[in-house]
Amino acid sequence: MESVFEKFYENYHRDLYHFVFYMVKDKETCEDLVQEVYINVMKSYHSYKGESSEKTWLFSIARHITMDYFRKQKRKRKRIAEFFDWGKRGAFIRDENPLPEELTLRNEMIRNVYCYLDKCTPEQKSILILRYIQSFSIQETAAILNFSISKVKTTQHRGLKVLRKYIHLEQQKGGDT
């Protein structure tokens, strides 16, 4: 068991951690989910048949676990939203999680992109992270997400469109003030 963990940790941990972190944007949650990914890997490694690369297999598990997390969060939020009427303002509320230290030194555009990633759907977000932050190819991204290549392209396009829209609004707001 330890050798499986060792192999995956040494080869892919850094990428795995980043994928999950940028999906959930909270270190504590990220650690819990990464742990869950490893548990799944170790429990099901015997059934891994080598049809995809180990990295693709690992990331498809990570993707399932983060999506599951978002589904649970969505249910929680929906219940909370029944008590609070956010109204139209809700759409423009930015991610209020504190910026990670590493982000504070980056330029405004990077900070905005980081914040508005949350306006994308989890699918769009996962594609943007895999494609641009982690430099996966379209084919690799399609294999991880079990999407067709054209779906990756469409969803990527839509995700970028969402970011463009909010960043444009932010720029207009900046221009107005």
Binding site: M1, H13, I39, M42
Partner: peptide, 27 residues
């Protein structure tokens, strides 16, 4: 936006490897 995504910083992982393994194996 694409450039910004490509330049997202590496986030420091505070989780120690052996600590992580302990947690996983006990689970």
């Amino acid at each position: 936006i694409k450039e910004s995504l490509k330049h997202m910083p590496e986030i420091k992982d505070d989780l120690d490897k052996s600590q992580l393994y302990q947690r996983i194996s006990s689970e």
